[in-house]
């Protein structure tokens, strides 16, 4: 079980381009998508992970590991998630500092970045509304409340430049009021 968790998150860690939010869709497909955990539980884990410092993806890995196999599971999943970054950064730092000057590397990222954009958009859709779609309650008060809070947060971040943590706190209050 521990090895399995390590392998799943090692695989995710190897593909974790674009940082936290893009990786959430990979994690969702590898865990909730394969029935390892429920989609609603995944949303809970994601919300908790978003509140803590650090990458939302690594935090989710920690919590999923913990849920599946206790503290050892949390360590296995987190290590699996981080190890590929550690190995690759050390290799890059040792051999390819000036990687970004090469056209081949820039071309690869030229092709990769749109994919990451899609992954992040997908993360917003599936993480946001996956459970509601699955239970057939996509068009209800719950979704409306969510959209309201979500829109308010966007306004707060983009227009009023509020710090993300302040946004999370306010939306917790809004959640208590609405739901």
């Amino acid at each position: 079980m521990l090895w399995e968790l390590f392998v799943i998150f090692f695989r995710v860690g190897c593909l974790a381009f674009g940082g936290g939010y893009a990786v959430m869709s990979l994690i969702q497909r590898e865990t909730a998508g394969t029935g390892r955990i429920g989609i609603e539980r995944f949303q809970e884990i994601g919300a908790l992970s978003g509140m803590a410092p650090g990458s939302i993806a690594t935090n989710s890995a920690t919590l999923i590991g913990y849920e599946q196999a206790g503290l050892a599971g949390a360590v296995a999943a987190t290590t699996g998630m981080i190890l590929p970054s550690l190995i690759l950064v050390v290799l890059l730092a040792a051999f390819f500092i000036r990687l970004h000057d090469r056209l081949s590397v820039r071309s690869a990222f030229y092709g990769l970045r749109p994919i990451i954009t899609a992954l992040i958009v997908y993360a917003a859709i599936s993480f946001g509304f996956g459970a509601q779609t699955e239970s057939g309650q996509l068009f209800g008060w719950e979704t409306l409340g969510m959209l309201l809070i979500c829109g308010g947060c966007l306004l707060a971040i983009v227009k009023y430049k509020l710090h993300p943590f302040g946004v999370l706190l306010l939306s917790a209050v809004a959640g208590i009021v609405i739901f």
Binding site: G145, L168, S171
Partner: peptide, 13 residues
């Protein structure tokens, strides 16, 4: 409250 935070995380995404 967690549902509210969930919506906020969607906004951050």
């Amino acid at each position: 409250a967690l549902k509210g935070i969930h919506a906020a995380v969607v906004a951050l995404i």
